[in-house]
């Protein structure tokens, strides 16, 4: 049984997750969940963001890690391999996800960081298409990747395999335009499970609220709900709201359909759209984010 689980998570971390995303994405598209908002510019941006990190950024980080860590931490390879599996699992889960919570939260709360994260919020739709959509700088400096790579080098690689697999499934599912969590709020006997689930992990309801284009309806909350795998950080720090509803609109109000290359590579390439946050003399933050 454990061997099958191990094989499952190994495949998930290599080709499994991209395949799941493509299949779910096709289902979303077939059900018309992107409506007519997946324009050519959005399509190119989403596809480039889906492919480039997988074939360039991840291998580069792994290679750099393997090269640098023996110099930075000499004689430390595998020194914590004695840590029992479930403790290793807990250590990695907290270290990885809490670091991502902070990385994400600071990109919303420190205005000078916002433009590196804006690309993820500019999509006016939710779903597999936009789940990987990020500016390249945001992806490269994805801080928890380095922390987790270091913990793997120190001997926690086996629990890290399971944590990263579970985490990627939860975060991907939270971005889906399929509202799979709805039965947990409507079916009576599932409600207690839903109550716990929405406080522990990110769900479409809580994460869609984070991607809303307004907070005026009392459902959208782009100023919070920063959690990725765990929602519990938002509960602890008071940055989350739970409404069990889904926003009517997604994206950012001041979006100017900036060129895909500017969104992907800002500040290397800038937008020609007048008044855009990504234009050469554009505002740091278009409106309150």
């Amino acid at each position: 049984m454990i061997q099958y689980l191990e094989l499952l998570f190994k495949n998930l971390s290599s080709w499994g997750l991209p395949v799941i995303m493509v299949i779910v994405g096709i289902v979303e598209f077939a059900y018309g969940l992107y409506e007519s908002r997946w324009t050519k510019n959005e399509r190119i941006l989403d596809i480039v963001c889906f492919i480039v990190p997988k074939i360039v950024v991840r291998p580069l980080i792994a290679y750099t890690g393997l090269l640098l860590l023996p110099f930075l931490l000499p004689g430390s390879k595998g020194i914590f391999s004695w840590v029992p599996f479930w403790w290793g699992f807990a250590i990695i889960a907290v270290a990885d996800d809490l670091t991502q919570y902070w990385y994400h939260r600071l990109h919303h709360q420190l205005p000078w960081l916002w433009r590196f994260h804006r690309t993820h919020h500019s999509a006016s739709y939710m779903g597999m298409a936009m789940a990987s959509r990020q500016n390249i700088i945001y992806t490269i400096f994805f801080s928890q990747i380095y922390l987790t790579t270091t913990l793997v080098y120190l001997g926690l690689g086996y629990p890290a395999l399971f944590v990263s697999g579970i985490k990627s499934l939860i975060t991907t599912a939270a971005h889906s335009s399929i509202k799979w969590d709805k039965p947990f709020y409507t079916i009576r006997w599932l409600k207690p499970v839903g109550w716990i689930m929405e406080r522990v992990i990110s769900t479409p309801a809580t994460h869609h609220a984070h991607h809303a284009d307004t907070t005026d309806d009392g459902v959208g909350y782009y100023k919070g709900n920063f959690g990725n795998m765990f929602f519990i950080w938002d509960i602890i720090f008071g940055t989350g709201i739970i409404t069990r509803q889904y926003p009517s609109g997604y994206g950012i109000k001041h979006y100017k359909q900036e060129e895909w290359y500017a969104q992907f590579l800002w500040p290397v390439f800038k937008s020609r759209k007048e008044g855009s946050e990504l234009s050469p003399n554009g505002p740091m933050v278009g409106d309150a984010v």
Partner: peptide, 9 residues
Amino acid sequence: LYTLPVILM
């Protein structure tokens, strides 16, 4: 929170 799992272990 970061140290909690280590302390508990």
